[in-house]
Amino acid sequence: MDTFLTFALTGVVLFSLGLQEVLARPGVLRMLIAVNVMGSGTLLFFVSLAHRHADGPDPVPHALALTGIVVTLAATAAGLALARGLHRLRAEGSGGRVEGGRVEGGRSQGAGYERGRSESGRDEQGRADR
């Protein structure tokens, strides 16, 4: 197992994991995380291909992957901004409650976050610590 094969396989695994999550998950944030994982997998696969020489790696895939990292950041930011815009619109339009239970709370943005939290009894922000 050389470095090339190890990371190429890791890239494939990451891509498949991300793909599964993108297809299955309804949540926007989760989906963006999954897309990022997929992207990392793709770049890992691609750059590991550049690592197949005896004398130093191929700089062309490196340059393209560098572009890929920066563009992924921009795409993630745009996606998150759209998700937040949608969230605000829904919160405004419904005056608080939206079908599907996705958006709760009115114009005050803290409220939805807070209510979502107290409804699920999970340990977010460490409730379980006390």
């Binding site: 005050s108 943005q109 803290g110 409220a111 976050y113 807070e114 922000q125």
Partner: peptide, 12 residues
């Protein structure tokens, strides 16, 4: 993020 979260809770 955590501090603002607390502010919005206290302020509400």
């Amino acid at each position: 993020h955590a501090a603002i979260h607390r502010h919005s809770r206290d302020g509400a």
